[in-house]
Computed example of a mutant assay.
Amino acid sequence: MSGVRCLLMRGGTSKGAYFLADDLPREPTARDGLLLRIMGSPDPRQIDGLGGAHPLTSKVAVVSVPDDPDVDVDYLFLQVAVDGAEVSDRQNCGNLLAGVGPFAVERGLVPAEDGHTSVRIRMVNTGDLATATFPTPGGCVDYTGAARISGVPGTAAPVVIEFARSAAPLLPTGRARQDVAGTTVTCVDNGMPTVLIPARSLGLTGYETPQELEADTALRDRLEGIRLEAGPLMGLGDVRDTTVPKLSLLAPPVDDGAVTTRTF
C-alpha cells in the first residue's frame, strides 16, 4: 500500500500538513479530494485524519520548485474546512509561511548554510514574495530557541520573515484612517487584507476571550457590516462569500510587545 509523504509542522499560531506538490495529484479536484481524506474532513472532530478539529489546525502547505531563478520555492496555501467538504485557496496564511523555509531544507529543495539559512518564497495565492531566515547550525534546521509568541506554549527557534515590497499599496484605500460603517478604522494589505479597529471604538477592552467575543451576536453583526463595507474600499469587491478582509481589534499591551490583538 502506497502513501503520501507529509510533514506536520507548526507555523506561528497554526499547525498544518506540508506536502511537496509532486507528491499530490496535479488536477485540483483530485488533489482537494485527497486532502479532505488526509485531514479527516468533513467531520467536526476530524477523527479520521490529521486535522485538529479547528481551522487553525486544518491547514495545508503545498511547496514546489519554481520556474523563477530569483525564487527558491513556491508556496500554495490551502485552507481545509473542518465540518465541510471544502478546500480553499482564496487567501494566504502567514503562519504556515513560517514553516515553508525549514520544510524546503528538510525536503532537500534548498541547501542549508552553516549558521542561518534564508529561503526566498513566492506565495502562489497572491504572487507576493517573502524571505524566511532561520537557524541552521551545522547545516541542519534547529527548531529550539527562546522565541515566544502569544497563543503558543513554550519557546522555539525564531523565523524572521521579510516581505518584499508589493505593487499593491500598503494602504489600499489611500488613507491611514477613515470611517467605515460608522467606525474609524485603518485598512492595510501587507500580504493579508486586514481592517484594524481600536477595541474601545466598539465598546470593548480588547482583552475579552475568544469565547466571549464569539458569543456576542451584536458585535458579530457590527463587525460583518464593517467587513462588507471595507471590502470594496480595499479593492476586493463583494466580500460576502470570502474570508478577507480579516478584522483585528487593537488594545494596549498587557504583558509585553506593542499591542494586544483579537483577530477574526
Rank of each mutant, 00 (worst) to 15 (best):
G3Y: 11
V4A: 09
C6H: 15
R10V: 14
R10G: 10
G12N: 04
L24N: 00
L24I: 12
P25G: 03
P25T: 02
L35P: 03
G40R: 07
G40I: 07
P42G: 06
D48S: 10
G49D: 07
G51C: 05
V60P: 00
V60I: 15
V60G: 03
S64K: 07
P66N: 06
D68H: 15
D72R: 04
D72A: 07
L76T: 11
Q79K: 00
Q91L: 06
L96M: 13
A98T: 12
G101L: 03
E106W: 06
L109E: 01
P111G: 11
P111N: 08
E113N: 14
H116I: 04
T117D: 10
R120F: 11
I121E: 04
M123K: 04
G127T: 13
T131I: 12
A132M: 10
T133D: 10
A156W: 04
V160Q: 15
R165Y: 11
S166H: 05
P169D: 12
L170E: 12
G174T: 14
G182A: 03
C187T: 01
M192L: 14
T194P: 07
P198C: 05
L204A: 00
T205N: 04
T205S: 14
T209R: 15
T209A: 09
T209H: 09
P210M: 15
E214C: 13
T217M: 10
R220Y: 02
R220N: 06
G225Y: 11
L233F: 10
L233D: 04
M234Y: 01
M234H: 02
L236S: 06
G237T: 10
V239P: 00
R240G: 11
T243G: 02
K246H: 08
L250S: 09
P253Q: 06
D256P: 00
T261C: 10
T261I: 08
R262G: 02
T263K: 13
F264C: 12
